[in-house]
Design a protein around this nucleic acid. Structure first.
Lengths: 236, 236
DNA sequence: GAGGGGCTATGACTGGTATCAAGGCTAAAC
DNA sequence: GTTTAGCCTTGATACCAGTCATAGCCCCTC
């Protein structure tokens, strides 16, 4: 109810549109998407889609953070990314006609638009500019993945944690603005599942970084105080 | 000189075409690609493209194996994949207009076709069926990457090595044929760089797997004797 | 066939991380 | 105001895996 106003936002007026995949749409296409989409408020902890299910459409985040993770054989979550405003989720498996390889779950109350499968796919085939944007974005993402893979394989937990903090600083910061003080709001367990380590190990590193004046904690929240120091700790 | 005959193979007659990305081309498109491409024999250890350089075209493997790796901050290679006959390399960075995030290097003498950038990009924009095939392939690949990431983060070296052996069995086997006895021909160091571990550790595991009758070694070559046992060791 | 270089193998040692076990804090519920 | 549940934190311990050092092996060259 308090968020009801969001439900009326149309893509054409959406402040995030040009940053998102849908930035490549012309006015007419944007209007059609807007007519086809629906917008919903999700509670913290709700699942947008489940690993192993078939895609029915795509999700575009208007407000809030979403964790995208994969379950390992022993049930442990490996967080692949933290998605934020303007991010579009759930289209890759749709295009490749696979089951979802990952699960998407809200980390806080979220406002998220849903565009049905057929509308999205028509966009892919009928809008050359959208098609190009999509292709470029995905290809770029694959390069980023090679990087992540290499870091995970070769860097220590400490280094990976430093990297994760820098990444999260961006995710939790306001787009475009630098210097702003950013509070990262995640459970220790989620943090550990990003870095790929045990919760206890992560907490000990948190302690170390605090002593080294790289970060500051406010309750569960973490503030990056010294990004350059973190970059050094990550050997970047 | 002994391989000269390959140089004359045209895409239309290439036995790998329908398996490759180019399988989506119609006869006329295929002919145009064939006219534009050139075919070269590479010696073992030659580099097709270097991390950090700009793509000039795409490579399509007609014969031989190619390792695709990324260098970590301390210079250690992380092997992202082993490419084989019918695989197409080097197009993703081209599409996303990035520098190559990885290096591609032949593992043995190879026969490889090269298609210049502009010809490939025209295909992407002008052939809807090719465009679709490409998009699907890349989207699928990203799902596979999430999987790799999770395994790397959560599985032990022993489990990862078992998985790598199963994967390599496919890469070194003949497409479609099962049961065939497959020899994996890689240095211990390359194996370690696939698994993400130290060479010594890998050799010790090799020893263990041999004792457990999961594999057999012939000189440097490795033969998978018991795939189901390996799958169990990998907790798949 | 002697030498050398690169790859393979093994042993000893170390250290980074995971695991197990308590205990503490916070915030919401009763 | 007490209780409870869910996180967070800390300590002790074990072990997996990396590093260093050394030696064997194979193949190629001279």
């Amino acid at each position: 109810m308090p968020n009801k106003k969001y439900l009326d936002v149309r893509c054409e007026d959406c402040q995030f549109r040009r940053n998102s995949l849908f930035g490549a749409l012309c006015t007419e296409e944007s209007t059609r998407v807007s007519d086809a989409k629906s917008c919903t408020v999700y509670k913290k902890g709700q699942v947008l889609f489940h690993e192993g299910t078939r895609p029915l459409g795509v999700f575009c985040i208007y407000g809030g953070k979403v964790k995208v993770y994969k379950l390992g054989s022993d049930g442990k979550e490996q967080i692949i990314r933290i998605a934020r405003e303007s991010d579009v989720l759930g289209y890759k498996a749709m295009i490749s006609e696979d089951e979802y390889p990952v699960t998407a779950e809200t980390l806080e109350d979220c406002t998220i638009c849903f565009l049905p499968k057929s509308d999205f796919l028509h966009l892919v085939t009928d809008s050359p500019s959208f098609n190009k944007r999509l292709l470029q974005s995905i290809c770029h993402e694959l390069g980023v993945m090679s990087n992540k893979l290499t870091n995970l394989a070769q860097k220590s937990v400490r280094e990976r944690f430093a990297m994760a903090l820098l990444m999260l600083k961006d995710t939790y910061g306001i787009d475009g603005e630098e210097s702003e003080e950013v509070e990262i709001n995640l459970t220790r367990e989620d943090l550990a599942n990003i870095v790929g380590t045990a919760t206890e190990t992560l907490i000990r590193l948190l302690h170390d970084f605090k002593e080294e004046d790289l970060i500051e904690t406010r309750g569960r929240k973490i503030v990056v105080k010294n990004p350059r120091g973190l970059a050094k700790a990550a050997r970047l």
